[in-house]
Design a protein around this nucleic acid. Structure first.
Lengths: 230, 230
DNA sequence: CCATAACTGTTTATCTCGTAAGCAGTACGG
DNA sequence: CCGTACTGCTTACGAGATAAACAGTTATGG
């Protein structure tokens, strides 16, 4: 609770202004950006207080004057990496709008693979993350979906983007190909136990398609079917 | 690579039988089960080598005679927790079958909330996890979908289950309600910046629906739409 | 105008973990 | 029987988060 409250205050800029004492040399924003750069280059595990502080020639402990701890820093990093949601062209209706939105969000995730890693657990929502949700829910206004359905649909889309990005980065990561190869080899050995998968693997079922587009179309078609009943 | 190969060997029972020396007191299965129990009760972070070893009155280091390291233990835990996929009733076609499958998988995730946490990053696939994929792909055989589409559809469904479970456990977790309340409060403060979300929140858009069923119906409708074109 | 409170970045230290290295005891194969 | 290949254990290290106390700096109230 304390930590989450601290994170929310930080994310939403509710840190009190200090009067006396030396002017702080750093800013929370600078720190978050530096941490994002490290994570982009070397993954989330490389983001240690030491590494971030080194960027400024500071000690690890000095960062605690700006952020309550590592967890809150990561929450900040996510909001920083997401950035403000770009405007969505709604002129052709909600469907192309959401398509565009999903691809933009995917591109952001692709640029910061560690975000998928970090967003998987419950954590406070920041202003920029919220701006993405805002765009998508706005695109669904006037479809006849209830408010709850609109939110559920956006959660569904966001989850798809996240999962797909994670799958991609897993494949792209060092070992991804070998992992897929090892799976194929294992499937060959145990073809009898997994007949459907073995058949699918033989027909190029693994990595053969564009999972992102396929899933996106499925979801949008599914939403369209629901909208059609209203 | 080494680690992943080790994990695959472990998952698929490729550990060589040892002849000489004292009989090992423990088994890999026992260790995995103990670790799962700890994670079920206190979350993944509570699964330390020490904690697991304590269950048997052993030292932390002794576990390294059975598993290469913590990462491999977690891979084992996931396969252990998933268990073997139950049979799926295909007599009414793929759609009810997948519905049933998704709910069963969700129930497993619900019983082991830490699995969502652990499955988010790339990791070797175990035999029991594969059995779940097998059931779902089997249900899609004969729909006219290509092998790649079948796999993509199952990945889509699995991702939905995982995301939804994570959302649920986030809400259920200590702080989830306060987190939602904090979000609602924040939305009130910044209603001008997020008009669509503020409207949705006012109409009970957050937590008002069954996101799991809604998303599942969307995805299945979307898959049905694709199947209909074949 | 200065004494002091409030705040800065630092030093030092602690605690938790994962895990490498090497030890003493044990049981099977020759 | 004896040596080898095991077992579980002891010891040790290093990484990393972070608590506590310190010395220097600056706005402010008397």
């Amino acid at each position: 609770m304390k930590a989450e409250a601290g994170a929310m205050d930080l994310l939403w800029g509710r840190t009190a202004r200090r009067a006396r004492g030396p002017r702080p040399v750093l800013t929370v924003t600078q720190i978050a950006q530096a941490a994002v750069e490290i994570a982009d280059a070397e993954g989330l595990a490389a983001v240690t207080m030491q590494r971030v502080a080194d960027r400024f020639g500071f000690t690890a402990m000095s960062l605690y004057r700006y952020v309550p701890g590592r967890a809150e820093l990561i929450a900040l990093m996510i909001d920083t990496a997401l950035g403000a949601a770009p405007p969505v062209d709604n002129s052709d209706g909600w469907r192309p709008a959401l398509h565009q939105w999903a691809r933009q969000l995917r591109d952001v995730f692709r640029g910061h693979p560690w975000v998928s890693e970090a967003t998987t657990r419950s954590r406070p929502v920041g202003p920029l993350e919220l701006s993405w949700l805002e765009r998508a829910v706005a695109a669904l206004a006037g479809t006849g979906l209830t408010a709850a359905e609109q939110v559920d649909a956006v959660v569904l889309l966001t989850g798809h983007v996240r999962n797909q990005t994670q799958v991609e980065s897993g494949i792209a990561a060092d070992g991804g190909e070998q992992l897929a190869a090892a799976l194929a080899e294992t499937l060959r050995e145990h073809a009898g136990d997994y007949p459907a998968l073995a058949t699918a693997a033989g027909d190029g079922g693994f990595g053969g398609g564009d999972g992102f587009e396929f899933g996106l179309e499925c979801i949008l078609n599914g939403i369209a079917a629901t909208v059609a009943t209203r």
